[in-house]
Nucleic acid binder design. Structure first.
Lengths: 168, 168
DNA sequence: ACTGAAAACCAAGATTT
DNA sequence: AAATCTTGGTTTTCAGT
């Protein structure tokens, strides 16, 4: 396996266009959003295709970074970590700032948005000292960041990944 | 499999305490954060345990909802969906409001936080009309919600789930 | 740790667009 | 022609003892 799974960075990887997802692709994604370790044979039964065909499709979806199949936890209580959302106002090129933020290992979720802020960045730190250092030395020093506001996470109340076709 | 994977709601499930995660557990989680379909035998080699022991541990971690193994996508371009973060100010019991929000199928991420807002809620909608309906009819009608602010997602720049022990 | 059963893998060949 | 699906044989993995 040459590709590096468990990561998606649109700023670094010019991933192929994933238009042309058909209904079967969506059905597979939907099933795997519920159970990422579901066997290919079971997936095959569900979408009424051969096991081989399903395996090829899943591999393609992973290779294209259309989806990733990963373990997700609540860092707040599994890793005893500090977690926060940092909301950022930008002056200048938002894409450049986003790319610089995406390069930070402690920032695991970066999204451009409309509204009071231009960027939302979710970060995970070991402790408060780490968080402070991250904010002060690595984030607020980035050129083009006009203002930041930090929302420290207190408790995770819901975390789901099973939206999509068959969800409703 | 009797449990319902692909979902974590602390408000509904009184999940068992997952203190007592040892180093092996953390190593397994870390590996699966990179590749959620990694085989038990490969996991076993990595942590130097028998395949059976590893399988039991992984099943326990899943059963306890310490982690979930799921497919994650960028709904913005895979599902052609509208996605947004709704920031909420609460009057009264934040837990109750969080629970009511967590009950909404279109809210897939709900977190209590400190700062200007009390709650952050990530939502996924089919289109603008759906988003408007969700905000107006299902969110802002909840008792105790004093104010909401919506940040519509424009582009996902980074999405990673591989933090943790062996990450650095 | 061992074993039967199941699943994953691989490579052509067939089929569809 | 290219991409996708099937099939059959082989290897690996799984789950229970």
């Amino acid at each position: 396996m040459t590709s590096e799974p468990g990561q998606r960075e649109t700023t670094e990887q010019p991933r192929p266009p994933h238009r042309g997802l058909d209904d079967v692709d969506r059905a597979l994604i939907s099933l795997l959003q519920r159970d990422g370790r579901m066997s290919f044979t079971n997936l095959a039964k569900a979408v009424d295709l051969s096991e081989g065909a399903v395996r090829q499709r899943v591999q393609r979806l992973l290779r294209d970074q259309t989806m990733q199949i990963v373990a997700v936890t609540d860092p707040l209580d599994v890793d005893l970590a500090r977690q926060a959302m940092v909301a950022i106002k930008v002056r200048g090129d938002v894409h450049r700032v986003a790319a610089e933020l995406a390069a930070l290992p402690d920032a695991h979720y970066v999204v451009l948005c409309a509204g009071r802020y231009d960027l939302l960045v979710e970060v995970i730190c070991h402790d408060d000292a780490h968080l402070l250092r991250l904010l002060n030395e690595q984030i607020r020093t980035i050129d083009g960041i006009a203002d930041t506001e930090t929302f420290t996470y207190l408790k995770l109340a819901k975390q789901t990944y099973a939206w999509g076709a068959l969800t409703d």
